[in-house]
């Protein structure tokens, strides 16, 4: 009984995050922001959903296969998000109005650290 309740809560929150990712895909203003909603919420949504399924089924073989799916989602999802973002960046897709740019690559903070190492 309590197992089914826990599974229900897990799967319910999984559905919630999947729904959030779908809503975010529609509402966000530009490509990169949409990637945020998809890359994160899809991952956790799938994890919670599969954890709930593992609790419901409770069979070692199926659980092993589903754990494998969890690992695959954790590996594939960020890579695909990164690929989509990189492709749009390479094509020069516009950012939304009012975006900021913070360049730490040539910033004084890093240069100071280098100076300390020299002296």
């Amino acid at each position: 009984m309590i197992k089914h309740l826990a599974a229900m809560i897990l799967m319910g929150s999984g559905f919630f995050f999947l729904a959030v990712s779908a809503i975010g895909l529609i509402r966000m203003p530009d490509v990169y922001n949409r990637m945020h909603a998809l890359g994160k919420c899809d991952t956790l949504g799938n994890w919670l959903l599969i954890l709930g399924l593992i609790l419901v089924i409770g069979d070692l073989t199926s659980a092993a296969k589903m754990a494998l799916i969890i690992i695959l989602v954790a590996l594939i999802n960020p890579v695909m998000t990164h690929l989509l973002a990189k492709t749009s960046y390479g094509l020069g897709m516009d950012l939304v109005e009012g975006s900021y740019l913070l360049d730490d690559y040539t910033s004084p903070k890093v240069n100071e650290e280098r100076g300390e190492q020299k002296g």
Binding site: F16, F17, V20, I23, G24, R27, M28, P29, D30, Y32, N33, H36, A37, K40, C41, T43, L44, L95, V96, G98, S99, Y100, L101, L102, D103, D104, Y105, V110
Partner: peptide
Amino acid sequence: EVLKANIMVALIVLNPRLPVSPGIVITR
């Protein structure tokens, strides 16, 4: 961190005002 990230994105997406202030950060 993934849990925290999801709650944060959910709060932003479900907020009617959509409080995003996006930008690019270049770091090493």
